[in-house]
Design a protein around this nucleic acid. Structure first.
Lengths: 194, 194
DNA sequence: GACATAAGATACTACTTAGTATGTTTTGCA
DNA sequence: TGCAAAACATACTAAGTAGTATCTTATGTC
């Protein structure tokens, strides 16, 4: 990796961390160059402006890493229901990438930016829609196998699961990690009854 | 109502609207005095500073109105499960107070402010905890009546319902109101199976 | 090793921000 | 009706904001 792309990645990673903790709008370019020990010249050499940097953050950092943990485990799984539960368990128990106090970086950006920036909204909707699709497919594939009752709506389940995740990430910000464990228990009963 | 408290209420109501649409940090005092046609002198006569105004917004406007629609319907209800469902239905279908693009003002503030301001966090946790308590009590009261299976954990149900609500408000920002209707259908099946 | 360009640094600008100091007007009440 | 205090207005400040213009240094290539 060239020195140039190395610093670019470094700026993006640090920006990601700051935005994750403080929010996109509350993170200033001065913040970013301060924590990276870079200068404005470096930042604006690598990125057209702050918005462009944010969008590249989503497509190059957020989307791929979230796809890996949220979507991929659901594709090609013999046991879709436990795959969904274990995906959620890994997601909520990953304390390296996530911090209960700060919630989920993807959800945070959705909450903050969707209402005020249509480009962000579209970029983020890709992520949520591909997650939804993978859950719908998982349930659909489970039904002919008799693992999920035939009258169950895969769309409804997907919305329930996604909403549950987004909501418990917000709840965790307020009442802490215990929200996660309680939610996971509730999710297990929910999935078992489908 | 005196003229003074009238303008105070007016400032608070307009501030509430702005914060609901743009977020707390993105709403400047200049924004507020511009949309109210007031001046800085008026604002700082009625409020010590921006933070204090936000906190009074929560305790005087947000908490009471949310309590009315979220908590009250669950107290003294003969049929707790349908009470929960109908509460959620009213909450999500109220298009006067809420806008799908902007989500829920309480959830928004939780998402934005809990990680960065402990006073906001504590004020907002009151709301979410009293909601949780009322759901727990509703389920508990339903169990001896045979309306909810005895092995069901009221705490788990409460966390599922609250997370579902918070999450679907975020999802609605991205994919629109159809998230609400799908979620409500999913919630109904979930509650019926308890 | 020269030298063109990439990569980064410095110093600015124009604007916005929360908050203050000090002014003027309105209002209740003796 | 006079007048003190409440209610509001005006004009500032100091710090922060995204972005630009221009400079210097590093790096690959012939």
């Amino acid at each position: 990796m060239s020195k140039s792309t190395e610093t670019r990645n470094y700026i993006m990673q640090k920006s990601f961390d700051l935005i994750y903790q403080k929010g996109y709008q509350a993170t200033s370019i001065d913040d970013i160059i301060a924590t990276t020990n870079m200068t404005k010249g470096a930042f604006f050499y690598h990125f057209k402006n702050k918005e462009q940097m944010g969008l590249e953050l989503i497509s190059e950092l957020l989307y791929p890493s979230m796809y890996e943990i949220m979507v991929k485990p659901l594709i090609e799984s013999k046991d879709p229901l436990t795959a969904i539960y274990e995906m959620m368990e890994r997601l909520l128990n990953d304390e390296d990438f996530f911090n209960a106090d700060y919630g989920c970086p993807a959800i945070n950006l959705m909450e903050e930016m969707s209402p005020i920036n249509n480009t962000f909204k579209k970029a983020l909707s890709k992520l949520v829609l591909s997650w939804k699709d993978s859950i719908v497919s998982a349930i659909q594939s489970a039904q002919p196998l008799g693992l999920v009752k035939p009258h169950v709506s895969p769309e409804e389940v997907a919305v329930m699961v996604i909403s549950g995740y987004g909501g418990v990430r917000g709840l965790g910000k307020v009442i802490g990690r215990k929200a996660y464990t309680t939610y996971l228990a509730g999710l297990k009963s929910y999935l078992n009854q489908l």
